[in-house]
Simulated assay, not measured.
Amino acid sequence: MEFRYLGHSGLKVSAVSYGNWVTHGSQVEADQATACVRAALEAGITTFDTADVYANGAAETILGDALAGERRESLEIFTKVYFPTGPGGPNDTGLSRKHISESINASLTRLRTDHVDLYQAHRYDYETPLEETMQAFADVVRAGKALYIGVSEWTPDQLRAGHALATQLGFQLVSNQPKYNALYRIIEAEVVPTSRELGISQVVFSPIDQGILTGKYKPGQPAPEGSRATDTAGGANFIKGSLSDEVLTRVQLLAPLAEAEGLTMAQLAVAWVLQNDNVASAITGGSRPEQVHDNVVAAGKKLLPETLAGIDEALGDVVQADGSLVGKASPTSRLT
């Protein structure tokens, strides 16, 4: 396993991390989810990412149970706050002091730990003053409930404002968690340069674009049984908009490039993300232990220049690189 510093901090994280978005508590049963976490540990992964909203807390509970008995100091546990949890009351969402204070306590209980290594704003909250949010995060850090603070899907201006307040309040804003992969590169134009300037790393999700970059979805053919695209519990909703024949045809052109590098297409996709030196970790999932082991092969892999050029050529104009889309994932008003 390769380890990288998280932002301008002294914290190292595994270049390939394990996340349980969509799967744990919904698509994958608890025993199978635990087996995947054990596989991640066996493969050298020390960094685990979750969120309170995943399966309304069930994903955190499953992760906490699966990690029970492990040496806490040898792990980096990340979680997030913003989206509605609990019964969905008017204060069960957002980045208010109230919601952050209550959410960190609930997350720690579910995760069976007294602190998380990274606590992340899952989105930007347009209805709470940023000063209130950052003061609440500062208090979480001072209370020892989180060691570092990060964000997810924030714009360059939001990153600058948040970083400035964090500096004033005496804590470190070290990371941003965006979607990033060979097909989806909207952070490259402005987010990555801004983050480099501020000492913020990317901890990216969907490096294989929810399985699309594995090549298992074929143009003109039904989705394979058991794949995310067939998951009626929720997974299909996240992927259906990306399964166009044009995209899937282009993705098939990556197969010989992966073969030339001695990689599977999934490994190629994860390795591509890790070529960006602003990426501290690529969050991978998996519904089976063998998928977890497969992804780890990408750690430390240096792709040839001709491979990188070949990926660009193969994907061509199906790549989404419009920087104006950054931040669009943050609701302009709270969901409850």
Rank of each mutant, 00 (worst) to 15 (best):
M1Y: 06
M1H: 12
E2A: 06
L6G: 10
S9W: 03
S9N: 10
L11H: 08
K12T: 15
V13Q: 06
V22H: 02
V22F: 06
G25V: 05
E29Q: 14
D31K: 15
A33G: 11
A35L: 07
C36K: 07
C36Q: 03
A39L: 02
E42L: 04
G44V: 04
F48G: 05
D49K: 11
Y54A: 08
A68L: 12
A68Y: 02
R71A: 15
E73W: 01
E73M: 00
I77T: 01
I77C: 03
I77R: 03
Y82D: 09
F83C: 03
G86F: 12
P90W: 03
G94P: 10
K98H: 12
H99T: 05
S103W: 01
I104N: 00
A106W: 00
H115W: 15
H115M: 14
L118A: 12
H122E: 02
E127P: 01
E131Q: 14
A136Q: 06
R142Y: 04
A143N: 04
K145S: 08
Y148I: 05
E153I: 14
P156D: 09
L159Y: 07
L165N: 08
A166C: 12
T167Q: 15
Q168C: 03
G170L: 05
Q172G: 01
Q172Y: 06
N176S: 15
Q177V: 07
Q177L: 09
P178I: 05
N181R: 09
I186H: 03
E188L: 11
A189V: 08
E190I: 01
S201R: 05
Q202P: 09
V203T: 13
S206I: 11
D209E: 15
T214S: 15
Q221Y: 00
S227R: 09
T230W: 00
D231T: 05
N237W: 06
F238V: 03
I239C: 11
G241D: 13
S244F: 05
S244I: 13
R250V: 09
A255T: 10
L257E: 15
G262H: 07
T264Y: 00
M265G: 02
Q267H: 02
L268V: 07
V270Y: 06
Q275C: 06
Q275G: 13
G286D: 04
S287P: 00
P289F: 14
Q291D: 01
Q291S: 01
V296Q: 10
A299E: 02
A299G: 01
E306D: 11
T307F: 07
V318Q: 10
D322T: 07
G323V: 12
